[in-house]
């Protein structure tokens, strides 16, 4: 199994609370994503065994939701909001700044596999724009200085092997 015993236990614990097992699909996908950082066919099969819902139904749901990458990413997935409130306060420039700092284009991963950079739609952080999400954390009111400090800090963490503390 790719899913850890802890993840499986967590999925089961969530599943029994719902009147119907199928409702546990999204919670199960979330648990798997939190453990693995992405989803794929193998993971759908394993979830299928745990919650006893056909693999196809799990894949059907999973492929609808954009929050879960369907292939491995860098250790830190940088998601920059480029929707209107952030765009008005420089989201495009933020993306360009990150591209130049990381030496990659939007949609790419750094060669050391530490950072992947993508843009996303509104993250509900409009009054603290511009912003980005890394892991489950929001970084808000971003400036060039703040971005420098965040990237330095994460790179150091990754090199020290503390990536899981995002």
């Amino acid at each position: 199994m790719i899913l850890s015993d802890k993840s499986i236990a967590e999925i089961r614990e969530k599943m029994v609370r719902y009147p119907r097992r199928k409702s546990a699909i999204l919670p199960a996908l979330t648990v798997a994503y939190n453990q693995l950082g992405h989803l794929d066919e193998e993971i759908y099969k394993e979830i299928s065994q745990v919650i006893d819902v056909p693999t196809g139904e799990i894949a059907e749901a999973a492929t609808f939701y954009t929050m879960f990458p369907k292939a491995p990413t860098g250790r830190y997935l940088i998601q920059v909001c480029h929707n209107i409130s952030c765009a008005l306060l420089g989201a495009d420039g933020l993306v360009e700044y990150l591209e130049s700092k990381l030496g990659i284009k939007k949609g790419e991963t750094t060669p050391d596999k530490i950072f992947t950079l993508i843009t996303v739609e509104c993250l509900g952080s409009c009054a603290s724009a511009p912003m980005m999400q890394i892991g489950d954390r929001y970084y808000e009111f971003l400036t060039k200085e703040k971005v420098d400090a965040i990237l330095d800090d994460l790179r150091k963490k990754a090199e020290d092997g503390k990536a899981d503390s995002v």
Partner: peptide, 27 residues
Amino acid sequence: LIVHTGGGAYICGEETALLNSLEGERG
């Protein structure tokens, strides 16, 4: 009370799409 988390889809803020999503369907 169950705290249920979504998967990143604006449409799930529409109430019937939300209900489909909560049932484990596409939103």
